[in-house]
């Protein structure tokens, strides 16, 4: 019984930090995560944005995507930090928060062998970021390499809304 009590005390002591680590922190993106992600969003128009904290053009685009998410509640917005060394969850999270993307579905590459993560997503992708993949309701994927034009995203989003009717 004493042991049980101790276990509960340990649980109580660690619970807040465990919850804090889970809430808002980008999820680790590992082998198999891409298929899970596609499966989880099947049938929903989804925007998947690949970026990184050291990427110059990404810094400009990220707040625009934050605004896009606000303006398009019908689109699932997913971000994946695809920097090759994924050891900066704090910097990643703070940039996402500042861009208004804190509440998006956020992931961070979590494999030192980033090639195999990219290979699962697109074997031809060398790691250039930013990169945006627009996944339509029917699963059709449109890839935008480099910074996306918000006008193009709006157009795609409108087309997705139209397919509901």
């Amino acid at each position: 019984m004493k042991r049980h009590l101790l276990a509960v005390l340990i649980l109580l002591a660690t619970l807040p930090s465990a919850l804090a680590a889970g809430e808002g922190a980008p999820r680790p993106f590992e082998r198999g995560s891409w298929q899970k992600l596609l499966h989880a969003h099947a049938g929903h128009p989804t925007l998947v944005h690949f970026w990184g904290v050291t990427c110059g053009p990404c810094k400009v685009e990220l707040p625009q995507l934050g605004q896009f998410m606000k303006d398009h509640p019908g689109i699932d917005v997913v971000t994946i930090s695809a920097d090759l060394v994924p050891n900066l969850p704090d910097a990643t999270r703070s940039m996402l928060d500042r861009a208004g993307l804190g509440s998006a579905e956020n992931w961070i590459f979590d494999d030192g062998f980033a090639e195999r993560l990219r290979f699962e997503i697109d074997p031809a992708w060398q790691g250039d970021i930013p990169r945006t993949m627009l996944i339509a309701r029917d699963g059709t994927i449109t890839t935008i390499e480099g910074s996306a034009e918000i006008a193009d995203l709006n157009k795609w989003s409108d087309a997705q809304a139209a397919t509901i009717r």
Binding site: A18, G22, A25, P28, N87, D110, D111, G112
Partner: peptide, 17 residues
């Protein structure tokens, strides 16, 4: 909550180059 926490702790070595 444990799986997330465990992953966060264990992934360090795996995620490193």
């Amino acid at each position: 909550a444990v799986p997330n926490l465990a992953v966060a702790q264990m992934s360090h070595q795996h995620a490193s180059e």
